[in-house]
Design a protein around this nucleic acid. Sequence first.
DNA 1: TTGTAAGCGTTATCAG
DNA 2: CTGATAACGCTTACAA
Lengths: 339, 339
Amino acid sequence: MSKLKPAPTLDDVAKQAGVSTATVSRCINTPDRVVEATRKRVQSAIEALGYTPNFAARVMAAKRTFTIGAIIPTMDNAIFARGLQAFQEELRKHGYTLLVSSSAYKPETEEEQIRTLVARGADGLLLIGHDRAPHIYDFLEQRQIPALVAWSFAAEGKLPSIGFDNRQAMFDLACKVIGLGHRRLAMISGITRGNDRARLRLEGARDAIRHHGLDPAALQVVETPYEIENGAEAFSGLMSQDTPPTAVMCGNDVLAAGALLRAQDMGLKVPQDVSITGFDDIELARLLRPGLTTVHVPHREMGGKAARALIEMVEHSTPGTGERLHTHIVERQSLSPAP
Amino acid sequence: MSKLKPAPTLDDVAKQAGVSTATVSRCINTPDRVVEATRKRVQSAIEALGYTPNFAARVMAAKRTFTIGAIIPTMDNAIFARGLQAFQEELRKHGYTLLVSSSAYKPETEEEQIRTLVARGADGLLLIGHDRAPHIYDFLEQRQIPALVAWSFAAEGKLPSIGFDNRQAMFDLACKVIGLGHRRLAMISGITRGNDRARLRLEGARDAIRHHGLDPAALQVVETPYEIENGAEAFSGLMSQDTPPTAVMCGNDVLAAGALLRAQDMGLKVPQDVSITGFDDIELARLLRPGLTTVHVPHREMGGKAARALIEMVEHSTPGTGERLHTHIVERQSLSPAP
DNA sequence: TTGTAAGCGTTATCAG
DNA sequence: CTGATAACGCTTACAA
């Protein structure tokens, strides 16, 4: 009863238009190598049949997928959304498709995703941060897959990177906090294992403590997963001690949002009773009350530049050139002088 | 100088193990059809060479990709994150990979993404909502691509759906609001074009007005894009009128969060001065202060069930069976009796 | 249980 | 400018 219509192939189009498959292929890929008349005929055959090139077949023959893979730690919050969006837009401008997958902040999952994307023929890969097992870099190199790191700049990384100096940025912010007279500090950090951004931000804060000749114990550290609720929990843990910190620096804005919200619940006034800072400058940071003092990261610039750099690597087999982007502190209301 | 190592192929493995390519293929796909000894030999050859099957070749030969595509309106906020996460987890359990792309709430983009995913050989598609151009359904049917709708249930939809009754849910919420004595209502709705969830939620609110015999003008409506900031803007617009509403119902929690935050900025107490409600019950709804009264959607249940239903459709070529999930109102503090 | 060989739908090379 | 035709790497009857 039901007519099974298999997807039309190049061959079908060729027959319908009365030309060879080669010509149809040319019409699609290099239209200028075909005379107008033929092209038009082929064009209408394509439309009449509703032909769409078979991706797999195309990949096999051309050994190119025009696909870029990106593996980000999470899609759950806004941290990577803007940058990735810009990355994708730039990619599309150049005819590439983006395949995204998330590693849920797990190194093992990331490795699996990398292999999957490579097996799927990704022409290039965007990875977040530099911390991963060495054999992954070997694999990428052996397979000759161009890969680029974003969200973290390191001149000496195994891979070129387009990002910023997480350590320096947090150092600057911590210096500002200390400069405001805070002497009992805390940091709610993301999990540092396999996450150089988290690790470096923490180091940056420690650097600042040292730089100002303070006792290392002046900085209390809590490591926690990256969800808003974890920030809230960590914050109440910190604040229910005998001598709670006067400033809580958070590894990112999501954690900071959790802290801020929990502060309200605990009846703590921010920044009068306790200062809170974030990192990333996502939209929420501006909307929260008090507005979150945080480190602004040029998300869109980073995404766009990463796309261009990666395409360059893919198309010209160049080693790729990194770039250190600048961040700056955005002062809003959640940070004030120590009481 | 540089040794270009092309990725090892089935053939390489076969030679190394001293068997035919067919046997290697069997070892990978149907291990029980191969004797232990051979299998082991092949296994070590695979490991020694670091072989990974070429995806495109596999797809061409098997005509299956074990890939499911999902097109969601946005990755920018948490609205779809949890459900999609559950969808993915369930898919993985059954050996499928998920390919996600976002349409940015644009019908044209969605269509393009559908075509791309189909061309890439997706075995099945998850779509959000029922509103789309008829020719898209024709295309899917002609190509025999199993597709399922989520986030919106409609018994008579062109496609089977696993979702809830957006209209009824909003109707119930609106009835509660009216029951609390509110007579000047407003709704901050998402863009309704091509978005049945937004459209139906709005209708549900209108139904409630009618149901209670109120003047249709008692419900003021603002349509706006789906970002937190749009919610804030719409809210201040609404509240700076001569006789502002006493309750503002929002099309989703993100819009509601924007409204709530803006209320604080305007010095308006929620719910004393104005009540605000959301829809979706994302994490933020619980963390905001006052907590957001909203409609709870069983995100994870929906994602898991959608995955199972879609796999069933793909593997057994069945037409697919939808399911209507239940929602309920979560009462927190942002809604109170009219002043 | 294992091997042989015929596709799968493109692209690209090489003639014409 | 256009047409044959050989890859591309894998799966899957069909044979042995």
